[in-house]
Amino acid sequence: MLNPQIPETKPVKLAVRGMNFWYGEKKILHDLSMDIHAERATAIIGPSGCGKSTFLKCFNRIHEVSSQVRVTGDMLMDGVDINRGGIDQVDLRRRVGMVFQKPNPFPRSIYENVAFGPRLFGVRDRATLDDLVEDALRKAALWDEVKDRLKDSATGMSGGQQQRLCIARALAVHPEVLLMDEPCSALDPIATSKIEELIFELKDSLTIVIVTHNMQQAARVSDYTAFFWLGKMVEMDLTERIFTTPRERMTEDYITGRFG
């Protein structure tokens, strides 16, 4: 966790300015602005229905797969607007990986799941694929458990393993940002702590944005924390400060469990 006394050295990776979001006719997010720093983990907390998952999914525009949505305001990645800056959403999703709430491995082998991404981008060479798969599985701390059964079906793994496989699958295309949408909500405590350790290691090389309803988790893994309520951002600060000396009364009430 960052010490409030030491100034931030990492550049801003994602900058959001005056952003609004509509699902069909319904406005979900109101006038959001925040900076997300590279190689830091930023947690978004808040009661269910506060729009935190919706917000997360705006960063890779995955909403657009299945619904009619509308965004106003700016969302910049490295200074380029991801909605209007001429970035193809498919390119965007390669650079901004995502891990979902429920593990969603494809119904094929462990190897093929991880190799899926590289194959999309035309990597055919077996040796390169092998390297990429091993590398991604090692980063996801899964290699030792599965190296002897790469050909087994991914759907036969435990929930925690499946989720780490999904992380490996996302890492295999070397994203710059990793979005995690309550990645542990379907997992038991042991699997959860493994994922948390993983987040800690991964943020050395990645920007991580994690949505969670578990405040201890936010406190454990993140450097920054933003608190959302009813589609608005109440407060965002260093995690250290949010959990010790929040500026807003509402944040304090939520963190101490008085509502939510």
């Binding site: 193809d88 498919v90 390119d91 590289p118 035309g122 390169t128 990429l132 070397h174």
Partner: peptide, 17 residues
């Protein structure tokens, strides 16, 4: 290991369209 260049290939996009 050198990381391959994961550019979405124009071929994939062309195929998509």
């Amino acid at each position: 290991m050198d990381t391959p260049d994961f550019k979405v290939r124009t071929r994939a996009k062309l195929a998509d369209r």
